[in-house]
Amino acid sequence: MYTTEMGKPDPAKVASIGGEDPALLEAFEARVAADEFIEPKDWMPDAYRRTLVRQISQHAHSEIVGMLPEGNWLTRAPSLRRKAVLLAKVQDEGGHGLYLYCAAETLGTSREQMIEALHSGKAKYSTIFNYPTLTWADIGAIGWLVDGAAIMNQVPLQRTSYGPYARAMVKVCKEESFHQRQGYEIMIAMANGTPEQKAMAQDALNRWWWPSLMMFGPSDENSPNTAQSMRWRIKRDTNDELRQKFVDITVPQAEFLGLTVPDPDLVWNEAKGGYDFGEVDWEEFYAVVRGEGPVAKERMEARRKAWDDGAWVREAALAHEAKRTARAAA
């Protein structure tokens, strides 16, 4: 999802905590185990810092790139109300990206470094945003499913061990609920509209269901860093636990809409008190992680263009300030 480990696991990095001062490491582990928050200037193992920088910046990039698929529909929203709502949602996502970049910067990276990493293709962001938004129903499906999956992942992160990240998550979570509800409201309108509109809603669900399940990241047996991240309270639930929770609460919402979840293996399992469901297409998941998503290239081109086109504004603002300071000093 927004924050899962999406790169290939690097055993060297996990092992590198061996090089830390054992007394400091022990004191750190004890604080984290006691659910204390770690703050920017506190001592922390290098691997903890690096994992956080990667996870938080990846999360920030996802918020920023996530503005593109929805921004695509701003001018074509079907009413002024829908347009105002979508504009507010997209603006929120930009805000989420900014909260998160700031949190990552407290760990010693810079905004410029992070943006450079994104634009050069070094940094990852959520796979979900490399799928296209083809119809208005996709905007409903994104709010309902994509923001729904994001909430599922972000709520436990409000108690993540790194203070600035946890505080950013508290703000983000307060704002996400509206995102999901506006999306579901669009789905209700479509599902109860003309047969063509209902078919559009079903088509959107068909296309977004599996990519939404992929947002929780690889299955637990393929997430070797999960144990360490959970021990450090960077992560609070495993990918599969969150995916299961998401399916369990979302299937009844699809039923209410009178839509069919595109999974022939989906069946209620009384014994476990949850749904059994089909296997995610991991081939597709890893292909999208590698940057082979349907619109991955367009997304990065749009980001780079926005950054390059804005360069003169960033420079002019600095030059203006320098001139003003010089004039005040004279």
Binding site: L98, Y99, C102, E105, A168, A317, R324
Partner: peptide
């Protein structure tokens, strides 16, 4: 305190 922002002035 709520967070931070980058700005030229």
């Amino acid at each position: 305190h709520v967070g931070s922002v980058h700005a030229p002035d």
